[in-house]
């Protein structure tokens, strides 16, 4: 248990193409919204950390350009991770635990529309054995889906149910990108994309940005701010060599969850599963019971802003707790091919 409070979360609408919005224009509205929602001034924030990847939009130093959205004067303490902003939150979490800071602003943004995202993501692969072959992210996920189906870890109908649930939940989320309800019959009739995956099994490509504010519980109480308490966070990583992993299991997610304080009272989980079978895999690996409400925001299948989607899972779960929907929640973020890296956050109502 920590004394770290999530007091604010803001998310831009997730869209296929943000068009005439540069990184500053994507980031600034969500930063201002997140700060205004909790009433902390920029000068009250001890530390800022962001997550993004310049390869997405093909703009070197876009992550530096994004700092123009912060009002970094007088000079601020600032950091960046070339990862999902969930890991930027993790950096802030560690600095909070270490006593270095008492509050932080975290943001993530992704503008994937300028490039060919599934191919750009091949850049994160092993540069000797994998990247020269340029396998795209959907193909790698499809290999994992096949392994799941072959091993009897999921069925086609269960994968469809994941998609149906995502769309149903997303109807309550005005910022979701894919919200149109679908039926088993429609999904069964859909043609293969990269078999065994169909397009509906895959997250959409999304542009967007998100921001989140944390501070000490004592400060939140003094300011009269509602908050969700961070029980714990941890992350683990698996081999970069895909052929050396059991693609049907996620020991890294399981170990991270255990270390973050996973317990049996979890009522809801935001799982960062960009592909339908991965939600099933994570539910199994984390041992979540049938009673756990999965992805009340719609999850990544309803919108997946690269480098913000993991933070969105945490922010969405915190927001659901703040709304009073749940007392105990789990949020999961992933990075890399086939759920290579997994970060788990356990949250609870204050």
């Amino acid at each position: 248990m920590t004394d770290i409070a999530i007091v604010s979360y803001a998310q831009a609408p997730m869209v296929r193409d943000a068009g005439c919005a540069n990184e500053v224009e994507l980031i600034m509205p969500v930063i201002n919204e997140a700060l205004q929602a909790c009433g902390l001034a920029r000068t009250d924030i001890d530390f800022v950390c962001s997550g993004s990847a310049d390869y997405l939009q093909g703009a070197p130093f876009a992550f530096v350009a994004g700092v123009d959205a912060l009002g970094a004067f007088p000079p601020i303490k600032e950091s960046h991770v070339e990862m999902d902003a969930a890991w930027a939150l993790y950096e802030c979490y560690l600095k909070m635990l270490a006593g270095d800071i008492d509050s932080a602003l975290i943001y993530g943004f992704g503008k994937s529309s300028p490039g060919n995202l599934p191919e750009v993501l091949s850049l994160q692969l092993d540069p000797y054995y994998l990247q020269p072959l340029c396998p795209d992210s959907v193909s790698l996920a499809a290999l994992q889906a096949r392994a799941m189906l072959d091993a009897g870890r999921c069925t086609r109908e269960q994968m469809n149910e994941v998609v149906i649930n995502s769309r149903r939940q997303a109807q309550k989320n005005p910022r979701a990108q894919l919200r149109k309800p679908v039926s088993q019959e429609q999904l069964q009739a859909e043609v293969d994309w990269i078999a065994p995956l169909k397009k509906s099994d895959c997250c959409p490509i999304s542009d967007g940005a998100s921001a989140l504010v944390i501070c000490r519980e004592s400060q939140a109480r003094e300011m009269g701010l509602p908050y969700a308490r961070v029980v714990g966070m941890d992350h683990r990583i698996e081999s970069h060599m895909l052929g050396f992993r059991d693609l049907t299991d996620s020991p890294s997610a399981r170990n991270a969850a255990k270390s973050a304080g996973l317990h049996n009272n979890i009522e809801a989980a935001e799982l960062h599963a960009p592909f339908s079978h991965q939600e099933i895999l994570l539910r199994q690996s984390l041992g979540l019971s049938e009673n756990v409400d999965i992805n009340p925001s719609g999850g990544a299948l309803a919108g997946n802003v690269m480098m913000a989607a993991g933070l969105d899972r945490i922010g969405s779960m915190a927001a659901a707790i703040l709304r009073g929907d749940y007392k105990f929640g789990l949020a999961h973020a992933t990075s890399g091919p086939c759920l290579q890296q997994n970060l788990v956050t356990i949250l609870e109502a204050a």
Partner: peptide
């Protein structure tokens, strides 16, 4: 490695 992009100028 060669990657193709289409840049769109920001509003400002």
């Amino acid at each position: 490695l060669y990657l193709q992009y289409r840049f769109t100028a920001g509003t400002s």
